[in-house]
Write a protein that binds this DNA or RNA. Structure first.
Lengths: 149, 149
DNA sequence: CTTGACCTTCCAACAATGGGAAGCTTTACG
DNA sequence: CGTAAAGCTTCCCATTGTTGGAAGGTCAAG
C-alpha cells in the first residue's frame, strides 16, 4: 500500500506520515525497489491509533508514551490511565483559561451598544490606564489613543 | 524610557516589543543617539492595550484591527463589537472542541480500572479497528499491537 | 512513448514566544 | 577615572504541528 492509500485508510495526511516517520514516532516504513513507501496493515493500524489519539488532543510527545504503552504487553493500565488523566488536566486548564477570556469579553460585548457612535466599553477597558500595572495618571494627553475621543 | 522599563510598565516582554515593532503592530519606536529604543508614555499606553487584548486571547492579526479602531476617532462601536464577537465565537468553538475531547477521554478514564493489569479501555478504544474509516476486519494478527494481548 | 498522477526528498512558512551569541552603552562602585 | 556589571542592539535558532511547493523519479493508462 503506498502513502496515498495509507493516508486515506488511516486519516493521517501523507505529509504527516512522513513527519511521524522522521521524528521516530512510527517505525521506518519499508520501501519498494524504487523507494516508494510500502505500508503494511500493521503500519496503517498504528497510524489509525495515532489519528484517534491526536483527535483527542494528545500531543506528539504524549504519543510516544501512548504508543510505547500500547506495544508493551506487560503495561499496567494504571500507567495508561495516568497519561490520559494528565491530558485531561491539561484540557481542563486550557478550557478554564478560554472560558475566563470568554466571560470577560462577553461582559464587555454586552455593554457595548454597537451602533454608529465611537464610544465603546471594549476599547475603554483595553485602554484603561493603571489597571494592574504601574499607574501613570495625571492627565497627559495621549493623542488619538484616549478611550473617549 | 528604555525597553526594560517599558516592558515592566506594559507587561509585554522586551522580546515581544521588538517583535511587534518588527511586524508593524506598533509604530517604530524612536531611538537615542546610541540606538537604544526610547519609549514615550504613548508607546507604553499602546503596549498596555496590546497586553490586555492579548490576555483576552486576541491574535496579533486581530490586534491590527483593534488598534486601528482604537486610533480611529470616527469608528463605529459596532465595528469593535463585531471584532470582539467574532473572537468570542472563536473561543466558543475552541472551548467546545476541548470539552468534547475531555468528555470522551473522561469516559474512557472512568472505565479504566487503572491497576497493574494491562487491560485498558483507553488503548482499546484508540486501537479499535474500523471505527470511522475503511474497515479491514478479518482477523490478521497485528502482533504486539492488539488491544488485548 | 507520452501524459498525468503519483511518489521521493528537501526547504520554507505559519504564530507567538523564548533562548542565546556577539558586540556596544550606560551605570555604579571603588 | 577605570573597570565591571547590567542592559541594550541585531541576528539567528528552536519550538509545535501542519501545509505548501520545487525538483526530480516512477508508474499506469492511453
Amino acid at each position: 500500500m503506498n502513502i496515498g492509500q495509507a493516508a486515506k485508510a488511516s486519516g493521517v495526511s501523507g505529509k504527516m506520515i512522513r513527519y511521524y516517520e522522521d521524528v521516530g514516532l512510527i517505525p521506518r516504513i519499508s520501501r519498494t525497489d524504487s523507494g516508494y513507501r510500502d505500508f503494511s496493515e500493521k503500519d496503517v493500524h498504528i497510524l489509525r491509533f495515532i489519528s484517534r489519539a491526536r483527535s483527542l488532543g494528545f500531543s506528539v510527545e504524549q504519543m510516544y508514551s501512548l504508543l510505547a504503552l500500547w506495544q508493551d504487553r506487560h503495561r499496567a493500565s494504571s500507567d495508561v490511565k495516568a497519561v490520559a488523566q494528565a491530558h485531561i488536566d491539561e484540557l481542563d486548564s486550557k478550557i478554564k483559561k478560554l472560558q475566563d477570556m470568554r466571560e470577560t469579553l462577553l461582559h464587555l460585548v454586552n455593554h457595548c451598544h454597537g451602533d454608529h457612535r465611537p464610544d465603546c466599553p471594549i476599547l475603554g477597558d483595553l485602554a484603561a490606564e493603571g489597571q494592574e500595572l504601574e499607574e501613570q495618571r495625571g492627565g497627559k494627553s495621549l493623542g488619538d489613543f484616549s478611550d473617549k475621543p
